[in-house]
Design a binder for these strands. Structure first.
Lengths: 234, 234
DNA sequence: CGGCCAGTTGAGTGTGGTCAATCGTTGTGG
DNA sequence: CCACAACGATTGACCACACTCAACTGGCCG
């Protein structure tokens, strides 16, 4: 059995929370936190598939998921990563246009669409929160377009690391540490690169003294300013 | 003076309208179509700039705009194109994170954010429509990520043309015709390519008998099925 | 007619992809 | 406890697709 106690839910560094966390609070207050809707998902288990009917959306409680889309020949684009507190699978379509997969063992609360619809009907403040959430996600997706379409491999990785640090990094003995719960493949598919390129750039950052890796999934940031600089320009 | 009468507002081919058009109807009904809020924009005039405070959002009435973001070294990513009926500049942030520029002379109605906020407060159905609109835009931006990050130049152009045809194409004497109101530069910056590559791929499509160009901006689609095939796979 | 600008086409280059070998960790079974 | 398999990550050699630089074309307007 997976030990969730060993997982922390870091508050993040300079990250102003918006949207999903507030949203989930409203939903939970209203649903009375029905724990039966919370489920454990195995590594690589899917929350939903591209094409599935949308019956419920998911609040990630512990662990990590990735939202992605496949092409018929197997090429994959990771759209976003879902961290604890994030809301995944929201749409106004009848069917999902993306798939969501657990990239660690994780716990998620399924929120029936009827509950969402009812809240939208009954509680105008909920509707507004949902709107804020959607607009926030929209701005993020659009920023990601710039990164993926116009930045070099080096800039992409720096941008990815900086964003991850801002949202999910934590300080330990004055050092900035960030965990990479996703594999190199997931990172590559998120940034429109290959695993080899991701690996090469990370090694380059290591040789350049920007970061250190105690473990392939644990990054200690040595020179945050330089990393930020690379993320912005090149 | 630009002759708007010569511009048509095509209904599009297999395009189920969603969001912005309904939305604008609600706004207009409520604002009583105050024509003083409608302005003419010159070619290359900006509706707003990245960083501007958000005081109003815009309904495109006639003509075309592009929403984009610049990097400090001049690299540009076009986020979306705004067509007649589209709503541009919506966000929940205090400031715009993108710029919007008229790519033809165009007319747009400025809708003050106070009006939007008031409608969100007073009319729950408006809030829902706005939510539908945001969710629709979100799904589009995410699909665009797949195209930009994972498809080849050929596939990108095919995808772009197919989408443009579905939304804004029209039939004339049984032929499918679509206008390209944007320059090759705009297309390139939308797809994460260069003008030269865009030009080469269009020439390739022409030589392959997929399309014909009566004018660099007017595409007659000869083989829609094959174009669709290329857009999906390769 | 000439200048201007968007678009097209060509030649050469470079960034990141492909293919392949190796390393390191984890987990399983003898 | 060690051997081995399995898998993710790393590194290297080579290659191709799209970019860069450059010349040229064609339409439009003064």
């Amino acid at each position: 059995m997976y030990d969730f106690a060993s997982e922390s839910t870091p508050a993040g560094i300079d990250y102003a929370p918006i949207g999903s966390r507030d949203l989930c609070d409203v939903v939970n207050a209203d649903c009375g936190r029905r724990s039966d809707a919370v489920r454990l998902y195995d590594l690589h288990e899917h929350l939903f598939f591209d094409g599935d009917e949308i019956c419920q959306i998911y609040e990630i409680i512990e662990g990590y998921v990735c939202v992605y889309k496949l092409m018929s020949d197997g090429r994959r684009q990771v759209i976003s990563f879902g961290f604890p507190g994030d809301l995944v699978g929201f749409s106004v379509d009848q069917t999902h246009r993306f798939s969501a997969e657990a990239i660690t063992m994780c716990r998620a609360r399924a929120i029936p669409m009827q509950a969402i619809d009812k809240l939208v009907e009954d509680r105008p403040d909920f509707s507004r929160k949902l709107l804020r959430f959607a607009a926030f996600e929209l701005a993020n997706a659009r920023e990601q377009l710039l990164t993926v379409a116009r930045k070099s491999a080096t800039e992409k990785l720096a941008t990815f690391l900086v964003a991850l640090i801002q949202r999910h990094g934590h300080r330990t003995d004055g050092d900035i540490i960030v965990e990479l719960p996703m594999t190199r493949t997931d990172i590559a598919d998120y940034l429109g690169l290959t695993i080899e390129t991701v690996s090469r750039v990370i090694s380059k950052f290591r040789r350049a003294g920007l970061i250190e890796l105690t473990h392939p999934t644990t990054v200690r940031v040595v020179d945050m300013d330089r990393l930020r600089g690379i993320a912005e320009i090149g």
